[in-house]
Amino acid sequence: MKTWLRISALWAMLLIVGCNTANNQQELEEETQEDPSTEQPSVEDEGVDNEDDRLAVEHEFTNNFLVEIDVEPGFHQMRGKLDGFEMLIPENGIISDLLHATENNDAETVIYTFNNEPEKKLYDVQVMYQSHYPEGLEQSYLNVFKHANNFEGEYEYTEVNDLEVYYGSYEDEDEYGPYLKYFGYLFSADNNQLISFSFTVMCQGEENCNFNHEEEAEMAEKLMYSIRLLDQ
Rank of each mutant, 00 (worst) to 15 (best):
Glu117Pro: 00
Leu99Val: 11
Pro118Leu: 05
Ala107Leu: 08
Asn63Cys: 02
Glu108Pro: 04
Lys121Met: 15
Lys120Thr: 14
Asn105Val: 08
Glu91Ile: 11
Glu72Asp: 11
Asn116Ala: 02
Glu117Leu: 04
Ile95Ala: 02
Leu98Arg: 14
Asn63Ser: 15
Glu117Cys: 06
Leu122Thr: 13
Val67Gly: 00
Glu91Ala: 15
Phe65Glu: 06
Arg79Glu: 00
His100Asn: 13
Thr109Cys: 05
Ala107Asn: 13
Tyr133Ala: 01
Phe85Val: 05
Leu98Gln: 15
Lys120Asn: 13
Thr109Met: 06
Glu108Ala: 08
Met128Ala: 12
Val67Phe: 00
Asn92Gly: 01
Gln77Lys: 14
Thr102Met: 10
Leu122Ala: 14
Gly93Glu: 11
Val67Asn: 09
Asn116Thr: 11
Leu137Glu: 12
Gly74Leu: 06
Asp124Arg: 11
Phe114Leu: 02
Leu88Ala: 02
Pro118Ala: 10
Asn115Ala: 11
Phe85Gln: 11
Ser131Asn: 07
Phe65Leu: 09
Phe75Ser: 13
Val71Ile: 10
Pro134Thr: 10
Lys81Arg: 12
Val125Glu: 11
Gly136Val: 05
Met78Gln: 14
Leu122Asp: 09
Glu135Arg: 05
Val110Trp: 00
Leu99Asp: 08
Glu72Thr: 10
Asn92Met: 03
Asn115Cys: 03
Glu86Trp: 00
Pro134Phe: 02
Glu138Phe: 06
Glu108Lys: 06
Glu68Val: 07
Met128Gln: 13
Glu119Pro: 04
Gln126Tyr: 01
Lys121Leu: 05
Ile69Met: 07
Glu117His: 07
Met87Leu: 15
Tyr141His: 09
Val110Thr: 09
Asn92Cys: 11
Leu99Trp: 14
Tyr129Ala: 04
Asn92Ala: 01
Tyr112Thr: 02
Leu82Gln: 01
Asn105Cys: 07
Glu138Val: 04
Ala101Arg: 14
Leu88Arg: 14
Ser96Pro: 05
Gly84Val: 09
Asp83Gly: 07
